[in-house]
Design a protein around this nucleic acid. Structure first.
Length: 478
RNA sequence: GCGGGUGUAGCUUAAUGGUAAAGCCCCAGCCUUCCAAGCUGGCCAUGCGGGUUCGAUUCCCGCCACCCGCUCCA
């Protein structure tokens, strides 16, 4: 089983076959940004579709949402991002390492005044008082709302889609008949000014998330956490990721984010170098942190206006005594009580998982002394589902093949090709990961059959023309 | 952000202070009745900007991007 062992090979393959291009390449590229080409967009759309089918379409207890990227700034105050994502950073003049100012300690080990750096020790080289002026590090992208340049408001491109879900928790409760336990699912772009962007599309500043916020009764959260871990792991393996390349990694207490009670990553072993485990998805127990915070935020709007709409000056009001009965609480009709639901959050990176599906599907094998390159995509993910060929460009074969292609196009992505030798056309489809090829041959006219060739085994069978549509749809399970 | 490396065609590589070469891919045509066959022809490149020079892809400087390591983030 051949694999790609260098990142360069992945980048090259992704470009060569039209999966992923560097953004703005004709202008020398833009760091950390990538575009999906013709095959890549099909693959990524299929990954998103498979996720949506798995968590929304196939379940009775999850509904969908598509919230806007721009939201009220106070969302980010309440969520904690405005504070946590705007750290002051100082750089050591000696070793040029950068450290968050609030993490620096004095020479004698005491915390000391955060603003007084003259006695602080560099954690990297132990130099004392060698720091530059603290610089604000903005992890959220800022933008302006309002075309009149003198009357604008600073907004933020969302650093996670989750807050759009929390902000709509009440709307979903009021407009649907969902009852806890239930979830809200969303796919969308998020933006973070990462300190370091690295390694192709693993960590980009613009990325696409698929998130579920699953609301459950306090006390049942740990059970749901385990349920979701298992469900999400199975999603990857069901779609063809080799189980050996997938694992859980539980976060230690000291690495948990500010909102999380527990968190487990689903990691994929990318085959570069010695094998590098990278996070595809995080499954977190956010407890009732977010909904409680937004209840505070909703009551802090006076402060927002009084402080001149400056997020850094706003302080959230204290939590109400009866917060469990607040506007973002849930009323359990049977138990006759209000409570703030706990939240289990499976948050998947669509770009990362798309790349994992691509890498995992890659294979090369020897066939009659020749190397055959093939992408063994799960049929649900394959960019093209079926290719149709006339064996030769005569005896009416192209017309029949065209008709079959047009017929199949109504249901699946189908591709017609009549160029070159038949073997070359098969191999081209192998490289794109097309699971089935249909060839119109001499028997089609005489016996009304076509040849169906299967990607992985290269086996061929005869299927009658009038059954081909049903045969393909059945094979693709569509 | 630091250190090191890299940048020639869609891909993989070559060469050079003086016309940039090849294979694969792709396109057109011929041939072709089941797995990258063959023949003919064709398209296509020195990341961007500046300097030195009669002349720069080559030497120098700056920028951009990517890779490796560190740092950072989580």
């Amino acid at each position: 089983m051949a694999t790609l062992t260098k990142l360069d090979d992945i980048v090259s393959l992704a470009k060569r076959r039209g999966f992923i291009f560097q953004s703005s390449e004709i202008y020398g590229g833009l760091a950390s940004c990538y575009d999906y080409g013709p095959l890549g967009v099909e693959l990524k759309n299929n990954v998103k579709r498979a996720w949506w089918k798995s968590v929304v379409q196939m379940r009775d207890d999850i509904v969908g949402l598509d919230s806007s990227i721009l939201m009220h700034p106070m969302i980010w105050k309440a969520s904690g991002h405005a504070d946590k994502f705007a750290d002051l950073i100082s750089e050591c003049k000696k070793c040029h390492s950068r450290t968050r100012v609030d993490q620096l300690k004095n020479k004698n080990g005491s915390e000391g005044d955060v603003n007084e750096l003259s006695n602080k020790v560099c954690p990297a080289c132990s130099s004392v008082g060698q720091f530059t002026e603290p610089m604000p590090f903005k992890l959220m992208f800022e933008t302006q709302m309002g075309a009149n340049a003198e009357d604008t408001m600073t907004l933020y491109l969302r650093p996670e889609t989750a807050q759009g879900i929390f902000a709509n928790f009440r709307n979903v409760l009021d407009s649907t008949r969902v009852k806890v336990p239930f979830g809200i699912a969303q796919i969308g772009k998020s933006f973070r000014n990462e300190v370091t962007t690295k390694a192709f599309i693993f960590r980009t500043r613009e990325f696409e998330q698929a998130e579920i916020e699953f609301f459950c009764e306090p006390g049942t959260d740990e059970q749901w956490y385990e349920t979701w871990k298992a469900a999400r792991f199975a999603w990857y393996t069901d779609l063809g990721i080799k189980a050996d390349n997938l694992r859980f990694r539980e976060h230690d207490a000291d690495e948990l984010a500010h909102y999380a009670k527990a968190c487990t990553d689903v990691e994929y072993k990318f085959p570069f170098g010695s094998g590098d485990w990278q996070e595809l998805e995080g499954i977190a127990n956010r407890a009732d942190y977010d909904l409680r915070q937004h209840q505070r935020g909703m009551r802090s709007m006076n402060a927002w206006f009084e402080q001149g709409r400056d997020l850094m000056k706003v302080n959230l009001v204290d939590e109400a005594e009866d917060y469990h009965k607040g506007p973002l609480s849930f009323y359990d009709d049977q138990k006759k009580k209000h409570y703030i639901p706990y939240v289990i959050e499976p948050s998947a990176g669509m770009d990362r998982s798309t790349l994992a599906f691509l890498v995992d599907a890659y294979d090369e094998e020897e066939v009659k002394g020749q190397t055959r390159n093939v992408l063994r995509f799960h049929p649900a993910l394959a960019p093209t589902k079926v290719a149709v060929f006339p064996l030769v460009k005569k005896e009416g074969m192209p017309d029949i093949a065209h008709n079959i292609t047009d017929d199949l196009k109504r249901y699946v992505t189908a591709f017609y090709d009549e160029k070159g030798a038949i073997g070359r056309r098969y191999r081209r489809q192998d490289e794109a990961g097309t699971p089935y090829c249909i060839t119109v041959d001499g028997d089609t006219l005489a016996e009304k059959t076509v040849t169906v060739r299967e990607r992985d085994s290269m086996e061929q069978i005869k299927v009658s023309v009038d059954q081909i549509k049903g045969y393909i749809r059945d094979k693709l399970d569509m």
